[in-house]
Design a protein around this nucleic acid. Structure first.
Length: 831
RNA sequence: GCCGGGUUGGCGAAACGGCAUACGCGGUGGUCUCAAACACCACUGUCCGAGAGGACGUGCGGGUUCGAAUCCCGCACCCGGCACCA
């Protein structure tokens, strides 16, 4: 392992550090991983696009980066071996808050922190021996990149998919910026943990809801190749529901009050209505007598934090609005209330309350002494008016003239909608939980929104030939949060001539959510230097979709949903011929330590650099890949990088023991060892393609063990089968441990690099076993084993089984009732 | 509450409906060594048994099958998503 132990004539171990230094240099010269666009465009070679989520440049790489890239590299290297032209790019998601916070702290420019970290991470990635094509490297904070982010924004805006609206938004008082719904977790800011409040602001949105149905439908297409948990998370997030809009006439008002309900069949049980307290609708509806009561209540609601609002078990609050509406099916006059349990931005912001069949409505009815009327008699359940338990199941309709004798909810809903539509009182409709994507942020270190606000012309998009709208040079205290964007305070930058009329105008002072940047970077990789658009349409057609996308499950909804949305819009713009960007997806687990997430406060962090120093890159990579299935979490405390290094040394020793000449044909070599070799290669193909990388490592270990045995106590080191086996080990190992694999390959007499070697050709004749072990069971229990030829007939196998002494003994004197024969591997005797 | 996934030796984990526990870690014993480290060899699911051997065994309870870790039904527990979304 170290130089000291290498004094002997025949070294028993290699010098890890020396090997790493040596091969890093060779790779730099050979550049074996640059993808050839022409080979794909011409159809000369089939493409594979291997994609890993690009990192945010915060400090150096950690265990998590090591794991995901180690797993990813197995796939990329395997595809290269199989003769595909592989694009394996990497870049940095380099806009974002940490750089801005660091800049304020250190009184510098965010770019200083950002680009210094990028260089650190770049060097670490290289040392980690990953087969990235660095010629495609990109950073989303480069003007050449964000110019095209702005260009895309303008195209979205032209299509009505980017718009501004005034509405209550999630506000993080600590980061002094708005947050998308996705960035609010349990009422707290996902980033800093501060309690999120609501603010009324004018903000930019992407109209992702326009694609809600397609985003949902296409999950069915992705389901076979995407993880279940991601599919489920996205389905839940999109939250499709079917129901009806029902129009209620409000006294003294021309416009109807329309509600959304999934239970139109319970319309006869509606005893009041509720409007979201913070909706404009409530403001419009409230009577003069109730106005001050309503306004007091609304203030109380606005002060409440998201956490308080989300507590589902808190008592219902609300206020009567002083108006009544008419139930369209029975003409009944019911009161209209305002409450905060109804959400302004879901459905129509108003509901019909059916307390008998909705627990929330029942709780509200109880709190304010409103009537409860049962219209579905659910067998076995009491009357909700007495039990205070709303019933939601199927049952016989009561007091519902429209649905007499109707059986079941589905039919009841269908008939009611039919009736409403016939009478012009409502219509069947579909609703989504998904909201539009709030993309503007009041921070500095992001993409400036390329829009100018002109007194005369209003909102004007910056013309394409004036892109990019670059950031002004701000640093340190200029960036301190003040509730408005730092860009608004940079007056020299913000005051411009209107591109349309030339009059005085101001630039939009918001920057984009960094999720915008990462929604299309995988397209830029297809033609990273392209000058005439965000990407070369032809190159994107050649490379897309990514054949695998590996990354953390924390992006199950956010990033993956946005990237899918962008892809669909770009397809509609005619720039892509795929509607889904990622054909297959794999989420690696997280690396923990001693049963807990690594953290500074717990003091249980495992430093990647220290592990690499101690065991070497190959051993750390091997440990991460061998630990278990890629999607499972790894507890580093349960792992043994020392054991991994031990194995690598054992494997390496094989390359020194081979005595046959390089190029010696394997034909005629020891058949038993050749069988193991060819079986291993054949299985490895299936295993890698099934992402079962841990098993590939196990099988490689078995091959090493078999080769060792052959050398020491079998056919001996000169047998050509030993060379074949050792060369196979080098290639299999290069998927995970590239340094030692190169070293082995060279010691075996080959030219570098093993990464450019051909995958071994499997000889099908060697996959057929000479003899197999047939198991003989009596009553399903193993009682004997027979060595038989694989071609044995059922009759012969049965005869041999029944002649076996142990089997005869197990049967004893009982009559044989039936014999199941699955030649050549199994016989089961039933007595 | 609704949706998705899981539960196999001391530990990480393998196993087209057909030998459960491959591979590795850890442990025990041994070879080498003055000694140790390294390396190598053997053993290592539980119980009974001196041994040969036997019984039991993949979270729990049923079922299908000649045969179930694997398929079906029910339950418990763990992990993840959604949740005052009408």
């Amino acid at each position: 392992m170290t130089a000291e132990t290498e004094q002997q004539a025949e070294p028993t171990s290699y010098d890890v550090a020396a090997v790493e230094a040596k091969w890093q240099q060779v790779w730099d010269e050979l550049q074996p991983f640059v993808a050839d666009d022409a080979a794909v465009a011409s159809g000369e070679r089939e493409k594979r696009y291997a994609l890993t989520m690009f990192p945010y440049p915060s400090g150096d790489l950690h265990m998590g980066h090591a794991e995901v890239t180690a797993l990813h590299d197995v796939m990329a290297r395997y595809w290269r071996f199989r003769g595909y032209e592989v694009m394996n790019p990497m870049g940095w998601d380099s806009f974002g808050l940490p750089a801005e916070n660091a800049a304020i702290r250190n009184d510098e420019h965010p770019a200083t922190y950002t680009y210094a970290n990028i260089e650190t991470q770049y060097e670490s990635f290289r040392k980690f021996g990953l087969s990235f094509d660095w010629s495609r490297r990109l950073h989303t904070s480069d003007p050449e990149y964000y110019r095209w982010t702005q260009w895309l924004f303008l195209r979205f805006r032209e299509r009505g998919l980017a718009y501004r609206k005034n509405s209550p938004v999630n506000w993080c008082p600590n980061d002094q910026t708005v947050l998308a719904n996705e960035q609010v977790v349990d009422g707290a800011c996902e980033r800093c943990g501060a309690t999120v409040t609501k603010r009324e602001l004018t903000q930019w949105y992407f109209k992702i809801t326009e694609y809600a149905q397609e985003l949902l439908d296409d999950l069915d297409v992705l389901a076979p190749t995407w993880p279940d948990r991601v599919i489920t998370a996205q389905r839940n997030w999109i939250g499709r529901s079917e129901g009806a809009h029902v129009d209620f006439v409000v006294e003294g008002r021309d416009e109807p009050l329309t509600v959304y309900t999934t239970r139109p069949d319970t319309l006869f049980g509606a005893t009041f209505m509720v409007v979201a307290a913070d909706a404009a609708l409530a403001e419009e509806l409230v009577s003069e007598e109730q106005r001050s009561a309503y306004e007091d209540y609304r203030e109380q609601v606005r002060r409440a934090s998201e956490i308080e609002r989300l507590a589902t078990d808190r008592p219902k609050t609300g206020v009567f609005l002083g108006v009544h509406a008419t139930n369209p099916v029975n003409g009944e006059r019911i009161p209209v209330w305002a409450a905060d349990y109804v959400l302004a931005d879901y459905g129509t912001g108003a509901i019909m309350a059916v307390p008998a069949h909705d627990q929330r409505d029942l709780d509200f009815a109880q709190a304010f002494d409103l009537p409860v009327r049962r219209v579905v008699d659910v067998p076995g359940a009491g009357d909700p008016a007495e039990t205070f338990e709303a019933t939601v199941g199927d049952g016989a309709y009561v007091d519902t003239p429209l649905l007499e004798g109707v059986d079941g909810k589905a039919e009841g809903v269908r008939r009611t909608i039919e009736h409403l539509e016939g009478q012009g009182l409502g219509r069947g409709t579909v609703n989504f939980r998904l909201r539009d994507w709030l993309l503007s942020r009041q921070r500095y270190w992001g993409v400036p929104i390329p829009v100018v606000h002109c007194e005369a012309c209003g909102e004007v998009g910056v013309p394409d030939d004036q892109l990019p709208v670059t950031l002004p040079e701000l640093r340190g205290a200029d960036l301190k949060p003040k509730g408005v964007s730092p860009l608004a305070a940079a007056t020299e930058w913000s005051q411009v001539a209107c591109p349309s009329c030339g009059g005085p105008a101001t630039r939009d002072s918001d920057t984009m959510d960094t999720f915008v940047d990462s929604s299309w970077y995988f397209l830029r990789f297809c033609s990273p230097g392209y000058q005439d658009g965000p990407f070369d349409v032809e190159q994107a057609k050649a490379w897309m979709p990514a054949d695998i996308y590996i990354g953390g499950v924390e992006h199950a909804v956010l990033h993956l949903l946005y990237a899918r949305f962008f892809t669909k819009v770009l397809a509609d713009m005619g720039m892509l011929d795929v509607r889904e960007p990622f054909a297959a997806q794999l989420n690696q687990g997280v690396v923990i330590n001693q049963g807990k997430k690594m953290s500074k406060s717990l003091g249980n962090g495992v430093n990647l650099g220290a592990q690499l120093e101690e065991f070497g890159v190959d051993a750390v990579r091997l440990t991460l890949v061998f630990a278990g299935p890629p999607e499972d979490d790894i507890d580093w405390a349960d792992m043994s990088p020392a054991g991994s290094l031990r194995f690598l040394q054992r494997a390496w020793r094989l390359s020194g023991d081979v005595t046959s000449e390089v190029g010696t044909p394997a034909e005629g070599g020891d058949v038993a060892l050749r069988r193991v070799t060819h079986r291993t290669v054949d299985d490895a193909q299936t295993l890698v393609e099934g992402h079962r990388f841990n098993v590939v490592v196990a099988r490689t270990m078995e091959l090493v063990n078999a080769t060792r045995k052959a050398i020491d106590s079998g056919c001996g080191p000169a047998d050509p089968a030993v060379r074949e086996a050792a060369e196979t080990v080098a290639r299999l190992l290069s998927l995970v441990a590239p340094y030692v694999a190169e070293e082995m390959w060279e010691r075996l007499g080959h030219q570098p690099s093993v990464a450019q070697a051909a995958w071994p050709v499997v000889d099908p004749a060697l996959l057929v076993e000479e003899s197999v072990t047939a198991v003989v069971q009596v009553q399903g229990k193993v009682r004997g084993r027979l060595e038989v030829p694989p071609t044995i007939s059922a009759a012969d196998l049965e005869a041999a089984a029944l002649a076996d002494p142990a089997v005869v003994a197990a049967i004893a004197d009982r009559p044989v009732r039936k014999v199941i024969v699955r030649e050549p591997k199994l016989v089961n005797v039933v007595v």
